[in-house]
């Protein structure tokens, strides 16, 4: 059975750790990291990458344009 999988790439230095993407993810994939970037913000990361469908909700809502979303169909 075909399965759609997604993943994200975060521009860590742009991320301000606002967490709006975390709250917007319908699949509960994202979490704020315990590590911080150069500006001291905790950066978003995929806590449950296998659950990502590549719906792009996180990218769409990110105020700082730091999330790039990829999606691939696996047969």
């Amino acid at each position: 059975m075909a399965k759609i999988k997604g993943t994200i790439v975060v521009d860590s230095e742009r991320c301000k750790g606002c967490g709006v993407c975390v709250a917007s993810c319908p699949c509960d994939v994202l979490a704020l990291s315990s590590e911080v970037n150069g500006k001291g913000y905790p950066v978003v990361r995929m806590a449950r990458p296998d659950a990502c469908t590549g719906c792009a909700s996180c990218g769409v809502i990110c105020p700082d344009s730091c999330i790039t979303v990829y999606r691939q169909k696996f047969e």
């Binding site: 399965k3 999988k5 997604g6 993943t7 790439v9 521009d11 590549g54 792009a56 990218g59 769409v60 344009s65 730091c66 999330i67 790039t68 979303v69 990829y70 999606r71 691939q72 696996f74």
Partner: peptide, 17 residues
């Protein structure tokens, strides 16, 4: 299962041009 490949044809959202 394989990982999603990070390449242009798989990109569905990015910072606007």
């Amino acid at each position: 299962m394989a990982e999603v490949e990070i390449k242009a044809e798989n990109r569905v959202y990015a910072k606007p041009r």
